[in-house]
Amino acid sequence: MMDEATWIQQAQHGDMDAFARLVSLYQAPVYNLAYWMLGERMEAEDAAQETFLRAFRHLGRYDHTRPFRTWLLSIAAHYCVDCIRRRRPVLALDDELTSEGASIDPGDAFAAWEARERIQRLLLRLPAEDRAVVTLRYWYDCSYEEMAQILGTTVSAVKSRLHRARLALARMLGEVGSTEWEVGSRK
């Protein structure tokens, strides 16, 4: 049975079947990262497709010493951050963040849909980079080092973003008054 490394090598030599296997293997991780970052299914699919297309174009430059998943998620995360930055002025007009972006799939159980909606609404209020860190941490269980590699930043920057995001999410959940959350305000 062939493994991922073989498929990558074959794809680098122009084997389309091998590349299709890689797409099939990584479609869920890439699509989920795009969805949790962008918050809309159509846009997530487009971003996931674009990620694989860019991966195909730059497959020759892929460094085999780096995990393929990290490389692929790095392409996806950067693309999604760019998408979010491009559309920011549009989102600012709709600060209420209603759930209109996410269509209800009749096939999904209501509880699952509700949970997804709830998380998505919270995530959409975070800055793009913080959203990426939260998704990589909680969906992919990435280490700080891996997140830093994927996002092209330092471990301390990733930690700082995750801490900030956790505090922001906790504040959004409304468990305590917002004045309690002012970091560094006390003596």
């Binding site: 389309m16 590349f19 299709a20 797409v23 099939s24 479609q27 869920a28 699509y31 989920n32 969805y35 949790w36 299914r41 699919e45 996931a48 497709q49 694989f52 297309l53 195909f56 699952a112 949970a115 997804r116 709830r118 998380i119 919270l122 939260v134 998704t135 909680y138 969906w139 999410l169 959940l173």
Partner: peptide, 22 residues
Amino acid sequence: VLREMPILSPPPGFVGRVMARV
């Protein structure tokens, strides 16, 4: 809440659409 993040399935035919673009 974050630990509840569900795994979503990509839409059907996703691989085919990617390969068509490729």
